[in-house]
Amino acid sequence: MRPVDLAREHGISTQAVRNYERDGFLPSAARTPGGYRIYTARHAAALRAYLALVPAYGHQDAGRIMNALHCGGPAGPDEALGLIDRGHGGLLRDRDTLDAVKRAVDHLAADPDGVPGDPATGPGPRTIGELAHRLGVTPATLRTWEGLGILTPARDPATGYRAYRADDVRDAELAHLLRRGGYPLDHIATVVQQVRGAGSTEALSDALADWQRRLTARGRAMLDAASRLSPYLDLLDAAPA
């Protein structure tokens, strides 16, 4: 096969195919005496797998998965599968967070006078480091959110350190969820402030419905990626050592 043969199936450029090979997303191609690349069914399966992985796990992790498969070591497939497992774990966590935010919205609709903290966040206020670790972000990110009004933590009167209580953790979880969904920070600030102020939740409901659709699409993309990756793994297993 020529680069154009692989490119035509997916509506991409031949340069993209060459770039994917260069970056290790495809196995290295043999060359003709004239220096032209020779692609095979194995390369075609690799390209199908990579392009299916992108909407499921993102460009970065899709590339890391394929790089792991092509690293040549016996641990490569396990590393690739570990990345896939972490992607599924992240999707499940997003679903759990979405469910928690939906419960907060339901409470707002029933009790517009206030939003209680989530007992699941645990007793006592959290430090900025503890909250950052919980969300998987940096403390600098939380300070940025505070500067935009997304978070409004109190200060410990003895130390002056930020103290994130249950409502703050809820706001941070909501901001993190919407940020992962691609929402700009100014939109997130508006939504979180609406929740905090027990005002209209229409904007939040619309955002959550859109994120639910995104999660469903990502879950289905993961199923499609698995159907493309499994045959490629079979080809790798069958390849001579």
Results as ranks from 00 to 15, higher is better:
159 T>S: 15
121 T>N: 14
123 P>F: 09
157 P>W: 10
145 W>M: 05
148 L>H: 12
138 T>N: 07
143 R>L: 06
118 D>V: 08
165 R>P: 00
118 D>M: 13
160 G>F: 02
116 P>Y: 14
176 H>P: 01
136 G>D: 09
139 P>E: 07
164 Y>L: 07
133 H>S: 14
143 R>P: 07
120 A>Q: 12
132 A>R: 14
167 D>I: 07
159 T>C: 07
167 D>E: 12
174 L>V: 03
125 P>L: 12
147 G>T: 06
130 E>A: 15
156 D>K: 08
166 A>W: 00
141 T>K: 14
128 I>N: 02
168 D>N: 02
146 E>I: 08
137 V>F: 06
166 A>L: 05
123 P>N: 11
163 A>E: 11
176 H>M: 07
129 G>A: 10
173 E>T: 01
177 L>I: 02
115 V>C: 01
114 G>N: 13
167 D>T: 11
113 D>K: 15
125 P>Y: 11
124 G>W: 06
151 L>A: 03
150 I>L: 05
162 R>L: 08
139 P>D: 07
129 G>P: 03
136 G>N: 11
114 G>S: 15
147 G>K: 10
149 G>I: 07
134 R>T: 11
131 L>Y: 02
156 D>N: 12
158 A>E: 09
146 E>K: 11
143 R>Y: 03
139 P>N: 08
129 G>S: 11
122 G>M: 13
157 P>Q: 08
114 G>T: 13
154 A>M: 06
130 E>M: 12
146 E>T: 11
143 R>T: 06
149 G>Q: 09
150 I>K: 01
145 W>L: 06
172 A>R: 09
130 E>K: 14
143 R>F: 03
121 T>Y: 15
138 T>D: 10
131 L>A: 04
128 I>S: 04
153 P>I: 05
120 A>K: 14
128 I>L: 13
126 R>S: 13
159 T>P: 03
166 A>I: 02
160 G>C: 05
152 T>C: 05
134 R>N: 04
145 W>D: 01
138 T>S: 13
119 P>M: 15
145 W>V: 03
123 P>H: 11
143 R>M: 06
176 H>W: 14
138 T>C: 05
169 V>R: 03
116 P>G: 02
116 P>A: 09
157 P>L: 09
148 L>Y: 11
151 L>G: 00
123 P>T: 10
117 G>Q: 11
152 T>V: 08
152 T>L: 10
154 A>F: 00
144 T>C: 07
164 Y>T: 04
